[in-house]
């Protein structure tokens, strides 16, 4: 087994406890992570291979040691703002054609859920420039990117792009822009300063009116193929058809036997049910910048 397959000191790792209890932890000798599953000594985690179940000192409950993929980072991060979730993130990665070597701008950074995913998609050779106008949030985001080990590919800046743009150094050098701002239409002029012809801009807004205003602004500013999309994750749960419900266990003996026969017939069957889902996150708007010879 190579050392890459093991968690090392300083690594940012995921400790998975349940679907809603996912912890992101930087491993450090002598430290202990405490949560409802128990006390987890980092000394006992460092050197273990990914995919191991690590145990708490008391109680014998375990957490799964996993790599910090962008998906898990999204589930584990501290919410400083409303965050963008999987369905929208994967969609915008696709819309922006985010891949190694590309240069992408993001505003605002927020809690860094999108930044972590885009940063990983652009590595190696690409770069994500992410902008946040809230000074304290930018500082926290910067610390997070350092923790995730993304500083080689993510540049985080404190800046209000609606008023001050993306900076001279990025002029005409950006392949895609993602805007998660209250007034994305106000940034369109600055987007045009940095985006290459044929590059795409994607905005994420919860309200139809925001999308409407932005779309009008984009059409007026030399963008085409203006498309508005909504995407939501529909989650399904599953249970064993054989597993008895509490209600049935209280029935008479005769009824119970009958049910046991019925259970036998259902052995190996699984029953799916729809789990609660987010009913709305935001609308994605995407547009492509016209060729260079069309203003």
């Amino acid at each position: 087994m190579t050392s890459e397959e093991c968690a090392r000191e300083g690594d940012f790792v995921i400790l998975w406890g349940s679907y809603t209890q996912i912890f992101g932890v930087v491993l450090k000798h002598g430290e202990i992570t405490n949560n409802r599953f128990g006390n987890f000594h980092h000394d006992e985690i460092i050197g273990r291979s990914y995919g191991s179940k690590v145990r708490s000192r008391k109680g014998g409950l375990w957490l799964a040691l996993l790599r910090a993929s962008p998906e898990f980072v999204t589930h584990s991060l501290t919410h400083r703002t409303q965050i963008v979730y999987h369905a929208d993130i994967s969609m915008l990665r696709c819309l922006l054609d985010a891949r190694p070597g590309r240069v992408i701008c993001e505003a605002g950074t927020g809690s860094g859920s999108v930044s972590a995913s885009l940063g990983r998609a652009l590595r190696p050779g690409g770069r994500l420039h992410t902008f946040e106008f809230h000074e304290e949030r930018q500082r926290q985001a910067q610390a997070d990117f350092e923790k995730y080990g993304l500083l080689d590919v993510v540049t985080s800046r404190h800046r209000d792009v609606c008023n001050n743009g993306f900076g001279e150094d990025l002029r005409g050098a950006v392949h895609g822009v993602f805007l998660d701002l209250p007034a994305p239409w106000a940034a369109v002029g600055h987007v045009s300063e940095v985006l290459v012809p044929g590059g795409k801009v994607v905005t994420f807004s919860p309200c139809v009116e925001q999308v409407d205003k932005t779309a009008t602004e984009l059409r007026r500013s030399g963008y085409f193929d203006v498309r508005m999309l909504e995407t939501l994750a529909v989650n399904w749960g599953v249970r064993d058809a054989e597993a008895k419900s509490k209600k049935r266990r209280l029935g008479s003996k005769e009824a119970e036997e009958k049910e046991e026969d019925a259970d036998a017939a259902r052995r190996g069957e699984w029953l799916s049910y729809q789990m609660p889902m987010r009913s709305h996150t935001g609308y994605l708007l995407v547009a492509t910048r016209c060729p260079a010879d069309e203003p």
Partner: peptide, 20 residues
């Protein structure tokens, strides 16, 4: 761990002033 079954509900809108 983290076994998930999901679908994606995706729909596209016409986005035009007063006709979205």
């Amino acid at each position: 761990v983290d076994v998930r079954l999901m679908q994606l509900f995706t729909r596209e809108f016409q986005v035009l002033p007063a006709r979205t």
